Deep mutational scan, measured.
Amino acid sequence: QGDIVVALYPYDGIHPDDLSFKKGEKMKVLEEHGEWWKAKSLLTKKEGFIPSNYVAKLN
């Protein structure tokens, strides 16, 4: 089961498979690959890669 993270900063995706998000948006982490994680937005239901240093895990 994936962790839920919250965006600390907004992110505008650079690549087509990036997931753009707004500050405060919550996402479910699907896979962790070093600095880039695959996640699904709980708001938009879209999936893509996010920079892990832009988010914090919720406990």
Rank of each mutant, 00 (worst) to 15 (best):
V29Y: 02
E31V: 10
K22I: 14
E32T: 13
D18G: 09
V6E: 06
D17K: 11
Y9E: 07
A56Y: 13
L19H: 01
K57E: 06
H15C: 13
L42F: 08
L43N: 08
G13T: 05
K45V: 05
G2I: 10
M27S: 00
E35M: 14
N53L: 10
E47R: 06
W37K: 13
A7V: 02
V5Q: 02
F49R: 13
W36G: 03
D18L: 09
K26A: 08
L19T: 02
K38P: 03
K40L: 13
W36D: 03
K45E: 14
G34M: 05
D17E: 13
I4D: 04
K46A: 10
F49S: 06
P51G: 02
A56F: 12
Y54K: 07
G24W: 07
I50P: 01
H15D: 07
V6K: 04
A7R: 00
G48T: 00
E35K: 12
S20L: 04
V5N: 01
G34D: 06
V29I: 14
G34T: 05
K28F: 13
G2Q: 10
K26F: 15
L19K: 00
K45P: 02
K23R: 11
L8P: 00
V6M: 08
W37V: 09
E31A: 11
E25D: 08
G24D: 06
P51E: 02
F21C: 03
V29R: 02
A7L: 01
G24V: 01
Y11K: 03
D3Y: 15
I4G: 03
G24A: 04
G2W: 13
Y9L: 09
S41T: 04
I14Q: 12
Y11S: 02
E25P: 00
W37R: 06
E35A: 13
W37E: 02
K22A: 11
A39P: 00
E32R: 14
L19R: 02
L8R: 06
E35S: 13
E32S: 11
D3W: 15
S41A: 04
E35C: 14
L58K: 06
F21Y: 01
G2D: 11
K46Y: 06
K40W: 10
E25V: 01
D12V: 15
Q1M: 13
N59I: 14
V5D: 01
Q1V: 15
P16N: 08
G2V: 10
T44C: 04
I50A: 02
N59G: 13
L42V: 05
N53Q: 12
V29G: 00
L43H: 10
M27G: 00
A7M: 02
G13D: 02
V6F: 08
L19E: 00
E31N: 08
S20E: 05
A39W: 01
Y9F: 12
M27K: 00
W37F: 15
